[in-house]
Amino acid sequence: MGRCSTFALYLRLVWYGFRKHAAYRAAAVAGAFTNTVFGVLRAYVLIALWTARPGLGGYDLTDAVTFSFLSQAYIGPMQVFGGGLDIPQRIRSGDIALDLVRPASLQLWNLSEDLGRAACLFLIRSVVPVVAGALLFGILLPDDVVTWAAFLTSFVLGVVVSFGWRYLVAVATCWVIDDRGLSVMSMILTTFFSGLMVPLVIFPGGLGTLARALPWAAMVQVPTDVYLGKTSLVDALAFQVSWAVVLLGAGAAVTAAARRKVVIQGG
């Protein structure tokens, strides 16, 4: 009975997370519009680059345009600019103590809500830029079910890795005096090393090798490569799963430390 009801709890939290964000439809639609505008602008820059250097990084022109719009589609669900969790706010207000004494894992609780949020924003914010890209420029659309299934898996793993990272940043608020500096740093790392600004395949030499090994690559670059069929599926998913495990593990350790700090030492 225990396991069943625990599962039901987290499933319900996914649903609540979905509904919570569905209430902000207008904001999400505006976000979809912004993502589309940026998709168009980035597409033109990449077209100029790939016109000068056809086949750069193993991508052709269509791959590069597809990359522009897909990368914009990740912003909502994966919260590439950071945030999306109310933990820092609850730490500052002291409400976190209430969360930590609940007979449920803070991390799983937030993961569930975050997955619901991601599903909601996927529907509102991801579909529009991709469809717009397809209509305005023509993007690559895989015609086999396997690629789509693989992409969906990779996408969900991207959301989980993104959550793992954002959760660490959020809980770190317990120890830093000002979390805003931290969130700016996180945003810089994520936007640059995920491939959101330019595909990691064109990063030069050692920087490129490094960027492709860091966890942020699991958010934008890897799912897109799966979509474009540019990578071995097993390698891609193994890469994402490894980082998900590492980040969630670190998150669990940090949660335990936070509980000690907040509940036992009293904040």
Binding site: L56, G181, M185, V198, I202, P204
Partner: peptide, 25 residues
């Protein structure tokens, strides 16, 4: 201080992107 630095690094990202592009062309 952190926000000033963060803002500058964030702005520097745009320059980094232009630099990455020009390492290729």
């Amino acid at each position: 201080t952190l926000m000033t630095l963060g803002g500058m690094v964030l702005g520097g990202l745009d320059v980094a992107v232009i630099w990455v592009i020009f390492t290729n062309t």
